[in-house]
Nucleic acid binder design. Sequence first.
DNA 1: ATCTTTATTGTAAAAACTTGCAATAAGGAA
DNA 2: TTCCTTATTGCAAGTTTTTACAATAAAGAT
Lengths: 140, 140
Amino acid sequence: MSCGLAYAPQLRSLGYRITPQRMAILHVLCHSGKHLTPRDVYQKAKKDFPTLTEPTVYRTLEFLAKNGLARPMQAGKGRLRYEMAEDDHHHIVCRVCGDEIEVEHELLESMYRKMESTSGYQRIDSHVTFFGVCPECLKT
Amino acid sequence: MSCGLAYAPQLRSLGYRITPQRMAILHVLCHSGKHLTPRDVYQKAKKDFPTLTEPTVYRTLEFLAKNGLARPMQAGKGRLRYEMAEDDHHHIVCRVCGDEIEVEHELLESMYRKMESTSGYQRIDSHVTFFGVCPECLKT
DNA sequence: ATCTTTATTGTAAAAACTTGCAATAAGGAA
DNA sequence: TTCCTTATTGCAAGTTTTTACAATAAAGAT
Ligand SMILES: [Mn+2]
Ligand SMILES: [Mn+2]
Ligand SMILES: [Zn+2]
Ligand SMILES: [Zn+2]
């Protein structure tokens, strides 16, 4: 409930408004496990703010992502999940069992620099999901 | 119409069946531009095979991807598009204007090896979409 | 040719996500 | 406080994607 307020000045300075819906959603993202689906967020935030609706959740998550407060993650099958934006990292998801691990961005950093200088693209997103096969599933 | 047949022996040897729906969809993927949406595929393939339905298209695309004939691509907002699986490559998409370029897999190869040895995950997918800002959009 | 097995499809409905628009309310000005 | 502007929301309807299950038809055996 209060943790959302920490972001209020930043949002207000950009000309955005502080609404209870946004605060409730930020609260959920801050205090829950990572990578929540829009539905997860909706159901949890609804407890704080019962008149919340689903379109607002989708729009708010996209809004927070666009402003760098939240980060979208590509879960399997092209579905998006969200988490608060903290330190840069990536994920590898097992395409067999769904198991998921984190990878330090450091490991990809020199590749990112090469990719940026080669392509001319900048500010490439440092939260990518790779799909592979985990050690367990490789055994069988 | 005929190009799908090229894949028939491979599919049959895995115990799968050759259906006109699959052939029509393979035909579309072979002869059309890259990265088609399921809806693109549906509308084009319907011309060859008018009784085709959308659930079949979704299932078939997923089926082809699982068997390595097609490749899913993460388009913006967590939407999937598909293309035939050919040489390994990646994409960078501009998160401002949507412009899109290809990146040789070669550029990422050493990073992939590091990631595989560090994580123990193998067969990591070599068709990733990165999001960044293109040179044009960087100017403004 | 006919039969049998079962992978694959279509149907119908549900779930997930998006959109347009009118109503609301946040934040600044008076 | 009250008023004004307009960003944001809720509502209702639309579109996209998934699912369960019964009907169909591909492929191999007879
Ligand atoms: Mn993450
Ligand atoms: Mn591609
Ligand atoms: Zn696994
Ligand atoms: Zn651009």
